[in-house]
């Protein structure tokens, strides 16, 4: 019952995600200018309208702001905003799939939790 429709993520969402990842990693620091939609479109070989849609979504979410005549900038506190939103969606994006796959494999809840705990132990080594 796994719904793989998510691998049909519209391109504009992918654009938004990429920019968010770059903000989180520090590649686009706060209050600095992000590449123009033209640059994004040429870099990723996508239609400028699509790039614009992705950028506008981030403006709506408050992650970017527009400086008239200059371009798009990373909002102060954008990284926090992104983390907060992704935390809220963590459940939908990862937990649900985890549970569905576990059910497919007939793993019990306790087995899954012990697997998660083991996973953390491996990460810390």
């Amino acid at each position: 019952m796994r719904d793989e429709i998510s691998n049909a993520v519209p391109i504009y969402l992918k654009v938004a995600e990429k920019i968010e990842d770059a903000i989180l990693s520090g590649a686009f620091p706060e209050d600095t200018q992000v590449p123009s939609t033209t640059e994004i479109s040429i870099h990723d070989k996508i239609n400028p309208a699509t790039a614009l849609k992705g950028v506008n979504l981030l403006v709506e979410n408050g992650v970017l702001y527009k400086k008239r005549g200059v371009g798009m900038f990373v909002s102060p506190g954008a990284a926090e905003k992104i983390k907060q939103r992704r935390k809220e969606e963590f459940s939908k994006n990862y937990i649900r799939d985890l549970i569905l796959e576990a059910q497919k494999l007939s793993l019990t809840k306790e087995e899954v939790i012990s697997l998660i705990e083991r996973g953390y132990e491996n990460e810390n080594h």
Binding site: M1, D3, N7, A8
Partner: peptide, 17 residues
Amino acid sequence: QYDTDPLPQGLERSSLD
């Protein structure tokens, strides 16, 4: 337009490029 209802048992949905 695909409906977002859960799929019957055993079926998987994927996108078409």
